[in-house]
Design a protein around this nucleic acid. Sequence first.
DNA 1: TCTGGGGTCCTAGGACCC
DNA 2: TCTGGGGTCCTAGGACCC
Length: 299
Amino acid sequence: MERLRTVTPLVEQISIDEAFLDISDLSDKPERIARRLQAGIRDELGLPSSIGIAPNKLVSKIATEVGKKAATKGKPPFALTVVPPGKEAEFLSLLPADMLWGVGPKTSARLNELGIHTIGDIARWPDAELVRLFGENGREMAKHARGQDGRAVVTEREIKSISQEVTFSRDVREDKSIEKTLTDLSVQVGRRLRKNELAGTTVKLKIRWPDFTTLTRQVTLPNTTNNDNEIAETALGLLRKNRKSGQAVRLIGVGVSGLGEPMRQLELWGTDSEKERKLQEVVDELREKYGDKAIKRGK
DNA sequence: TCTGGGGTCCTAGGACCC
DNA sequence: TCTGGGGTCCTAGGACCC
């Protein structure tokens, strides 16, 4: 990502190893920029990469995948795929429908039933019909199928929620063990919130039963929190309300949303919650320095 | 892909308020 | 006493993404 930012600051990271670069304001030819970048990544970092160049994010992403797939089997890909302006729809038309963003297994299956297999098939369907069948997603699909995508490259995005979950290697029935895990997860969520200088109002519990059905239960607190204890107590409350003692669980998780700046109670120095906040600050520092095991909550 | 983890966005219903 | 419309917030679930 650092290497990418030497090309332009307009970098949108979309996963651990993928990003969009907006190079529309650079005077150099896009292909030259891409080749130079690819060579740099190879020579400086020893890594392969695939690049797609197109007038918008949607098409460039798909172009990247197409190039990557076409790379010689067993060899690391160094693909470069260019879709010039005006050629977007043509480029997409023969590709399978589920290569489109927003078309997952469910939508793909429904499209298949309608005899729609390629992106070109989607583009040929009336917009109104797609909207009727798929709602807002249908409207997006219609535009995307024609290669239209107006979304800008976004360099930073607001965090909307922070969560932690674990899948047990077996179904777990012991209340103690489940509650301990949930408490640990709450601590991790709290710590990540504080690290990002965030706090949230809504605590969500997630449970997966042995049959893989999933339940979520959330509650909105009167104030924002990033306090380990408060998150844990809230999550534990939801757990006790929604799970019978001894009932087997496959996955447990907790998340906090409704994020904003942590509440500072300046006028309440010396209150319990302020003491708690300062305590937590110290605990975070100790763990940062000496590791997770350095200090634990009693009781 | 017999199924891990962390996210975002959308839909839909209900409560509540004006 | 009943009816109406619109807006916002909350909750639950699901589709989808990497």
